[in-house]
Amino acid sequence: MAQAVIEAKDLGLTFQTADGPVFALSKVDLSVEEGDFVSFIGPSGCGKTTLLRAIADLEKFTEGTLTVNGMMPEQARLARSYGYVFQAPALYPWRTVEANVGLPLEIMGIGDAASRIQRNLDLVNLSGFEKKFPWQLSGGMQQRVSIARALAFDPKLLLMDEPFGALDEIVRDKLNQQLLELWDRTKKTVVFVTHSIPEAVFLSTKIVVMSPRPGRIIDVIKTNFPRQRTLDIRETPEFLKIAQRVREGLKAGHAYED
């Protein structure tokens, strides 16, 4: 069996705040294998973004163990093991599209920038927009630029934090389809945070259902859709069954609050 790309055991993360400790993550066990498309789904406050940020070493976990490519998250970050896509495009407004995509290459001193930029802009269907500035693009296009930027230095792992959360349903469907094609073509491992059930079920090989207070995993569902799939699968009984199970899980997690 291939080595797990991400491995968490008994992972906990507590924020110390003025109002006392906040248990953002508690007893999280998770394993992500190479080539997986894993979604974290849950209501806000369930720690799904925190878990992603812990994997990226943007937050420090406080209990248990967590490895990325067999390394501590910090080593993995220093080794530039992953590309990260944020909730907002976070493009630098004074850089053109190509300069934004080229930013990680400049920072890491990777040559061959022009062809890498071109290849990744092709991948997100944005050829011809190289010289545009971010404000000249729609929200969906900006987010695609940020995906191209995350892919520019060819990391094997792609971490995405609700990348399409701010976009409308139609654009989101289209981008989901494109993302899936990209995942199929590049054979990347993707970890994807969302709060949309159809999005999670459509995209994932593995759905991690989370619940808040304390943030924890309450269900892990494997799906078995073909790698190349279209939005039509959302009408199939299998899809609806999985969506139902995710919904049940989210409901069970919420029962504590009422």
Partner: peptide, 8 residues
């Protein structure tokens, strides 16, 4: 954070 992920 983006810069941090690049280890800049």
């Amino acid at each position: 954070d983006l810069m941090r992920t690049y280890n800049a």
